[in-house]
């Protein structure tokens, strides 16, 4: 249902993403693992279309030359040239790295901004769902987003993405800098989103261990190339993966 085909991204002459193809079937959770600078965020930007905006801004400034190749398909539609806000409209919603919540808006307002694309009735349902999923947000509805803790911000960022009623939810390093307790909340939440709403989820992470239990299929990126892919069991059995990503 969702397919990125032979994606290649260059920053100037540096290759950030080399011939990466990923597929995500409906209702599946896909994991993408790799160290820093392996191309995880670039992949997320390419898939969500943000790369097109970065590219356009750089071109106007006369800055870095960014080249993007490959195609992105979603529900049988070719999304390769579709702008990011229209991809969000089609159902591809990115919850970005480092969360990027709106710091001056209250928690409630962050969520309301997230519901830009949905009808008011749908927004109400989504809000209820998000607050059920992350009850902790209920206690802080009036607080400014910038003053939340990292874990709370992450819950808010995921909640805000859910307010847009995504069909494919892209989570870029959702566990970055979180305590183990919050990591567990976020991981359980991610699984709950898939189980209850059937939303497909693509999640990137540096450390595979906390995410591994919930994924159906995984890819491992190294220096921009996808070096290994397989189901959860296949990845867990691979000795290279074990040593590199689990520290065994």
């Amino acid at each position: 249902m969702f397919e990125a085909f032979e994606l290649m991204v260059f920053y100037e002459n540096m290759i950030a993403l080399n011939n990466v193809s990923i597929t995500c079937d409906e209702g599946k959770i896909i994991g993408i693992f790799g160290s820093n600078s392996a191309g995880k965020s670039t992949l997320m930007y390419a898939v969500s279309g943000i790369i097109l905006d970065i590219k356009r801004k750089e071109e106007m400034r006369g800055g870095e030359r960014i080249s993007v190749f490959g195609r992105v398909f979603f529900d049988g539609r070719d999304m390769t040239a579709v702008k990011p806000h229209n991809r969000a409209k089609a159902g591809i919603v990115l919850c970005p790295e480092r969360r990027r919540i709106f710091p001056e808006s209250s928690v409630l307002e962050n969520l309301k901004i997230g519901s830009y694309l949905t009808s008011s009735r749908e927004a109400k349902q989504n809000l209820e769902y998000v607050l059920d999923l992350f009850p902790r947000l209920k206690d802080h509805l009036k607080r400014q987003g910038g003053f939340l803790s990292g874990g709370e911000q992450q819950m808010l960022a995921i909640g805000r993405a859910l307010m847009a009623s995504p069909k494919v939810l892209l989570l870029d390093e959702p566990l970055l800098g979180l305590s183990p307790a919050y990591q567990e909340i976020v991981i359980n939440g991610t699984k709950a989103i898939r189980d209850s709403k059937g939303i497909s989820i693509i999640v990137t992470e540096q450390y595979a261990r906390p995410v591994m239990p919930i994924i159906d299929y995984g890819y491992i990126l190294e220096n921009g190339s996808s070096v290994l892919m397989g189901t959860k069991e296949e990845l867990l059995d691979n000795p290279d993966v074990k040593s590199a990503y689990f520290g065994v």
Binding site: D53, N86, A88, K89, R100, I113, A164
Partner: peptide, 27 residues
Amino acid sequence: TRYTKIGLAFRGIAQDERAAMMLGINS
């Protein structure tokens, strides 16, 4: 800016253009 959809979109764009874009707001 607090209670209409387009006003809220304004507030989103004002604080983080790209994050707002990811939510479907056309900058």
